[in-house]
Every structure is written in structure tokens, then in C-alpha cells.
Design a protein around this nucleic acid. Structure first.
Lengths: 235, 235
DNA sequence: TTTTTATCTTTACATCGTCAAGATATGATT
DNA sequence: AATCATATCTTGACGATGTAAAGATAAAAA
């Protein structure tokens, strides 16, 4: 895609069959010698993932490209391939990191208070994570670019689901084993998850602020969210 | 992106500065004369949108490219640009069509029965649309590729929101004017929308079938959905 | 010290979106 | 009816992207 308004240092490849540049090898050595390690980066994998997170939060999903990540990390455009195979690999590993961040944030919100207070705090933490990390949250639920068969992603996502199930179980004053659910339990989990995920997605897509404009002036997103949680089911 | 595993008829462009092919002009005329209209398609805009819908349902969002749409419609790769400006334009017009389809389906489900029955039928119709048109539904909520300032999209999306608000109002036995909401009303709308949108997205992303596997054997997605709707809020 | 392996670079290529310029048909004007 | 203007579509080009293949270099193993 040619819509990214960044970087354009005239890197047109040399014409086909042109002789290899004589001084290129030396130049590369000199340039890279200015940095820490000339060839072996040492911790490239992590550096690439960090760069990727930075990019997805700054430019959104369309800005997250293998080549942009490589540029950000200061390596050649094909370097990421060696560590992640392809774009799906990198995105999947990044999503795994996202799930771990998310799990951490949810755990931190679920420490003190009554069952009701913990539930509310967890719900707010869910939305807060999505709002603070819109790129990562979007990534985590874009299956088209995710390979759920990757163990790291699979595990992290499963842990997130188990945590959610546990939280819902606590609010129902029962212990939920995420591997075997009753229909009632699953309904409660699906309700909580759909409600939170739906609100988060609509929020990130700007649909909720559209709604906020129809509300009395000064109403905040937090108020709308709490009004939603308080709203009784139709009967 | 070069990840689309279709089409590869060696259309490498001619080398720079190569002479124009002598017989190309005539060949094009002959080929296109086999079809209805040689140059002016007549209804290319609609044909492109139809092709786009077909593609997005067949290959998902990544398969929806300007060039693929042009191929599908049998025109040159730059033809869509004239009608839609750019990819965002085409996607936005397609999303507008999606919202109109969606509105139609929701209206059809909201005709007979009690208020409760109409509400349930509408909820099921919401999910049914998403499930029957996953590509279109995904499109409609991918803001990154949508230009909401386009009148057709803006209007169709607003109509969808108004319909939803009306439905929620009916279930509360009150008339809702979508342009000015109370916090309570907005909470109820946000609740219904988040619940349905969240479930739809999780369903399309395969998360719900993951959950279904943890349920007693033979449990259907419909049962899970109804269990969710019946599930009481935590208190 | 030599060999092997892992890591990174270079080069190449098909695809994509988009722009610019050309070709052709349709409609309007005279 | 002939000419012109405009809308529609094609061709060609360019920079960007993902990815594969082959080369270069450093680290590890032998």
C-alpha cells in the first residue's frame, strides 16, 4: 500500500543487473559500527516487538508493516522474517504480549473490596485497557491476521478467557472451571464478555462518542458506561 | 500486499521505455467487442460494488482490493478509481449498502408479536445478519477504512442507529428521539448495542465457538445466545 | 583452529494503491 | 449533421509492501 505518509528516502532499488556497489560493504560496516553491535543485534526479537507495539499505537494497524518495524528497529527490511516467519507471525506474537498486558491489568483491578466492587473495578479496567492501548486491543481481536495455533498466543488468550470466567464465577458466588461450563455459566460469561468487548469496540470505532453527542452536555463516557451497566435487561 | 494466493498471469509491466505494443489497441477492441459494450460499461459502478461484496464475502477484508474488484468486473485496474476516488471510497460505499441491507433485515424482523417477541426477533435478526454476511458486517465496523463523512454512509449508519434506538425505546414502552437522549435511555441503547455487537464480533472471530466447545455436547450457538440474553446482571 | 549454525543483509519479484496521460464513447451545442 | 465538451475507461508508471532466495557475517561447536 502506498498510503503511508512517512519515509521516502528514495530507496529505489538499483536497476536490474547493475554491478554491486563497491563501497557498500565497507559503508555498512562503518555505519553499523557506530551502534552497539554491527551485525548481531543480540535482542532483535524483543526490539522488533517493542517497535511493533510503538507503531501500532502510533499509526494503527495499517501502519504495522514488517518493513516499518524493521526501519523502526534500524535493521534491514527482511530481518523480521527470520524471527517471525511472516507478518502473521509478528502480529500474533504481539497479540500474545497484548493478552499478557491485559491479564496483568485485570488482575491488578481485582484485588480489594466486595465482590460487587471488584466486578465494577474489573469492568472499568477492561475498558481502560482498550482505551489506553487501542492498537493492541484491536490487534488482539482481528482474527484475519492472527494465528491462534501459535502456542504463545493460544496460551495468553486462554489465560485471558480463564480470568474472565473466574471473575464472572466470583460475581455469581460460585467456582467456575473454564474447561467445562454449564449453559447458565456460559450465558453469564458471554453476557459479560459481549457487553465489555462490544462497548470497547464501539468506543474505539468512535460510535460511542457519536452517541455521547446526543446526551445532555457535559455527560462523560464513564457516566455512559456506568449507565449501561446499571441498565436493566428488557422484559 | 503479496499474500493473495490467486491470479498470477505474469503481468509484469513492460520494461521501461519499451515501445508500445503495435497490435494491442486492436486486440483490446476485439476482445471487448465480444462483450456487451466495448468501452462504456453503462452500470459499472453497481457492477463494481456487486463484485466487491462478492469478494469480501469470499476472501474477507484482505481480499477486497481495488484491483481484484476491477478484475472481477472485467475492467482495467484503474477503473474503480474514477467511481470511488480511492479504496476508502469504495469500502465506504459498500459499507453503506451493508447498513441498508442490515436495516431492511431488522425491519423485517420487527413486524409481529408482542413487544417482547419483537425484541427477541430483532436481536436474533441482528446476529443472523452478521453471521450470514460476515464480510459486510466486519466492513461496517472497521473505521480505519471508512469515511464517515460520505453522505451515503453517514445516512445509512445513522438510520441503523435510529432503528436500534427506536427498538430499545419500544421495549421500554417509551418513544425515543435519537437526536436527544437521556442518560437512562442512552444506557439502555448502549447495553443492547454492545451486547449484540460484542456477541457478533466474538462470534465472527471464532471466540464463541471456542466457548461452545466447553459446553455440554450438542449445545448450539442459538442456545448460548439465548442463555446470554436471559442471564441476569450481576448484583 | 576449523566447521557448523544462527543471524542479518541484499537482491529480486509479484502485488497493491494511486496518479497522470491517453483513448474512446456519450451528450450537448451549433 | 458535424463539432466540441465531458464523462468514462485504459495504459503506463511509481513507490510501497510481503516474501522468497542467496549471500555475508558473527557466534557457537567441534
Amino acid at each position: 500500500m502506498a498510503r503511508n505518509p512517512r519515509q521516502n528516502k528514495g530507496n529505489r532499488p538499483r536497476a536490474r543487473g547493475a554491478a554491486k556497489p563497491a563501497a557498500a560493504k565497507q559503508a555498512v560496516r562503518r555505519i553499523r559500527a557506530d551502534k552497539e553491535s554491527p551485525y548481531h543485534h543480540g535482542a532483535l526479537r524483543d526490539a522488533l516487538l517493542q517497535a511493533a507495539e510503538k507503531l501500532v499505537e502510533r499509526d494503527g494497524l495499517p501502519g504495522l508493516t514488517l518493513r516499518a518495524v524493521a526501519r523502526e528497529a534500524g535493521v534491514s527490511h527482511a530481518a523480521p522474517t527470520h524471527h517471525f516467519g511472516d507478518l502473521t507471525g509478528l502480529v500474533s506474537e504481539l497479540a500474545a504480549i497484548g493478552y499478557r498486558q491485559f491479564n496483568k491489568a485485570m488482575m491488578a483491578a481485582n484485588v480489594s473490596g466486595t465482590v460487587q466492587e471488584k466486578g465494577l473495578a474489573s469492568a472499568k479496567a477492561y475498558i481502560a485497557y482498550a482505551q489506553a492501548n487501542p492498537g493492541m486491543y484491536g490487534l488482539m481481536f482481528r482474527t484475519e491476521r492472527l494465528d491462534m495455533s501459535r502456542p504463545s498466543l493460544h496460551e495468553a488468550a486462554n489465560a485471558a478467557f480463564a480470568g474472565l470466567a473466574r471473575g464472572v464465577g466470583a460475581s455469581r458466588h460460585e467456582h467456575i472451571e473454564a474447561s467445562a461450563l454449564s449453559l447458565e455459566q456460559a450465558g453469564a460469561i458471554a453476557r459479560a464478555w459481549s457487553l465489555l468487548h462490544g462497548f470497547a469496540m464501539l468506543l474505539l470505532d468512535g460510535r460511542m462518542s457519536h452517541m455521547l453527542r446526543r446526551l445532555p452536555k457535559g455527560t462523560t463516557m464513564d457516566q455512559l458506561f456506568e449507565a449501561m451497566l446499571k441498565s436493566p435487561p428488557p422484559r
